[in-house]
Design a protein around this nucleic acid. Structure first.
Length: 519
RNA sequence: GGCCCCGUAGCCAAGUGGCUAAGGCAGCGGAUUGCAAAUCCGCCAUCAUCGGUUCGACUCCGAUCGGGGCCUCCA
């Protein structure tokens, strides 16, 4: 099954062929570290982390780079507000970003280069562009001349004329062409500045990505990712300056992820039944619906208090990466419900075989995928079909939604085996069946790891209190067992009902009672 | 105004020019259970509307309606 990816440049799915066979250079536009990350900042990293994992699993040697923008107007403003240096602020927010990535299970990034550590590389590229007449210095600034790139606009599918149609006329008409953009900005007093052939200044926004991407991944990248919002002008400009600099294709496959949206109330107001419906939502209401635009967009760290990070990751991956995602607590909670079924399966597996799902050693390469015993035949066939569906989905432009569905199917097949053979209900546990079950669970682990879920056990709720709570539960359930032995159902049911009020679920199984804390 | 995307069951969400349109959550029926819970089995969609292309469209084209994005150094 060949891998196919959707390329923004061509607007269609293309066969995935890398510059160097077997190797992938992948670059993702990272954050400007000026404020704590919100959920939207996690979308790209989670998606491209998953892509990296899957490519590596598929046999590619992948180098994955995410840049850190640590010099920028927003940083300067925010640092001044907080009476910090730009460097201090950047350092603090970078740490926040890294913490969040770790929590979200984004662990496949090979390198996080900093813009400020690549000023020299940027200057060299700028100089090359000037030498090639693609850029021109102007009063301490350096601008890229968009007319130097005949294909300018190809990525975002607009012509230079169209670009200008919607743009406000700026006061700054010193530029040769209104669409020209800054490669280097002369700095004002008090701002971070670096010496340059054009005077003290700092880099423009787009040049850092070109410099760092080329330095670490070569002049032609295989994959360049980012949010849809970056397509224009950021990626368009990056593409133009890079190709003008090297004369080579800059990126083979441009991948853009959809943006997260917070609520839809803004668009819904006044719609529907109002036949006059001409009450357009005002600009402010529209802004409120935009995650990034709403100043109240909570940090991911706050979100982690409400939802398990794994649930959030699963939420992000249950829809296609190019689609926008509606953010809401309800939508995320629903994913938590779906995941609970997996956790119960892991517990059943532990009860049955004594093995810990999280300690199963799963193959990390698709070529060495978990062998499934030929017996029972139906089980073998079902699992194989499931695995095929997973691969098919992922090979088709990383369709994580389809892959997730395969995981659910897998869960059902495993539960069905347990059910049919009464493995968790006092039935005989034949070694061959247990081996089949273990193989199936190993496959589940193998595949789910590619999505970055079920990596490690959830932290137990209740923390340090758990040991004591467990002892109390043993006592309560012992008393309840005595009541049940004498068919004292009212007492037995009362205990169970009262526990339920405490969010403790009791299950009376044929071979014993189990309990768990509910979410 | 310009460019672009989307509209699939109560909700979320895959997918395909033609066999029964994935999966999840919720719901309903059954098995199981002392009763539950959990699990399994089963049920639950004329794919926004209208027209066109085609032997045949949810899938292609056009129009309409509805939602959204970008054009503003938001990921």
């Amino acid at each position: 099954m060949p891998l196919r990816v959707y390329n923004t440049l061509s607007r269609q799915k293309e066969l995935f062929e890398t510059v160097v066979p077997g190797k992938v250079g992948m670059y993702l536009c990272g954050p400007t570290v000026y404020k704590p990350a919100h959920i939207g900042h996690m979308v790209g990293p989670v998606i491209f982390d998953t892509i990296k994992k899957y490519l590596a699993y598929s046999g590619y040697e992948v180098k994955f780079v995410i840049n850190i923008t640590d010099v920028d107007d927003k940083l300067i403003v925010r640092a001044a507000e907080r009476k910090l240096t730009v460097e201090q602020l950047a350092r603090e927010m970078t740490q926040d970003y890294f913490d969040n990535l770790k929590t979200m299970g984004v662990d496949s990034v090979d390198l996080f280069p900093y813009a400020t550590e690549h000023i020299l590389e940027m200057q060299q590229i700028i100089q090359t562009l000037i030498d090639k007449q693609c850029a021109y210095p102007l009063q301490g600034d350096v601008y890229f001349d968009v007319t130097a790139d005949a294909d300018y606009g190809a990525l975002s599918h607009r012509s230079i004329g169209e670009v200008l149609a919607g743009t406000r006329v700026e006061a700054n008409d010193r530029k040769r062409h209104p669409a020209d953009f800054a490669l280097w900005k002369a700095s004002k007093p008090g701002e971070p500045a670096w010496e340059s052939p054009w005077g003290p200044g700092r880099p423009g926004w787009h040049i850092e990505c070109t410099a760092m991407a080329m330095k670490y991944l070569g002049e032609t990248l295989d994959i360049h990712g980012g949010g849809l919002d970056l397509m224009f002008p950021h990626h368009e400009n990056e593409l133009a300056q890079s190709e003008c600099c090297t004369g080579k294709k800059f990126t083979r496959y441009w991948l853009h992820n959809g943006l997260m949206q917070a609520g839809k109330q803004a668009g819904k107001v006044g719609g529907g039944h109002d036949r006059h419906g001409d009450q357009l939502p005002d600009k402010e209401a529209q802004e409120a619906g935009k995650l990034a635009g709403s100043k109240g967009a909570a940090s991911v760290k706050l979100l982690f208090e409400k939802h398990a990070p794994e649930t959030i990751r699963f939420f992000l991956l249950s829809t296609h990466y190019r689609s926008p995602i509606d953010f809401s607590d309800e939508n995320i909670s629903e994913k938590g419900e779906s995941l609970a079924g997996f956790y119960r399966l892991f517990e059943a597996f532990q009860r049955i075989t004594g093995q810990n799902f999280y300690q199963l050693s799963a193959p990390s390469s698709r070529r060495e995928t978990t062998p499934i015993p030929p017996e029972p035949a139906a089980f073998h066939a079902d699992l194989t079909a499931c695995r095929d569906r997973f691969f098919e989905a992922m090979d088709d432009d990383f369709n994580t939604g389809g892959a997730v569905a395969a995981l659910f199917d897998l869960r059902k097949i495993l539960n069905a085996l347990i059910q049919d053979r009464k493995l968790d209900a006092g039935g005989a546990r034949e070694p061959a069946i247990l081996a089949a079950l273990t193989a199936g669970m190993t496959l589940l682990r193998e595949l789910s790891l590619q999505l970055g879920v079920f990596r490690e056990p959830l932290p137990t709720k209740g923390g340090a209190d758990d040991g004591f709570a467990a002892q109390l539960m043993d006592l309560v359930l012992e008393l309840r067992a005595e009541a049940r032995a004498t068919k004292n159902w009212p007492m037995s049911d009362k205990i169970r009902a009262r526990l339920k009020e405490l969010k403790v679920v009791v299950e009376d199984r044929t071979d014993g009672v189990i309990w768990r804390r509910d979410t």
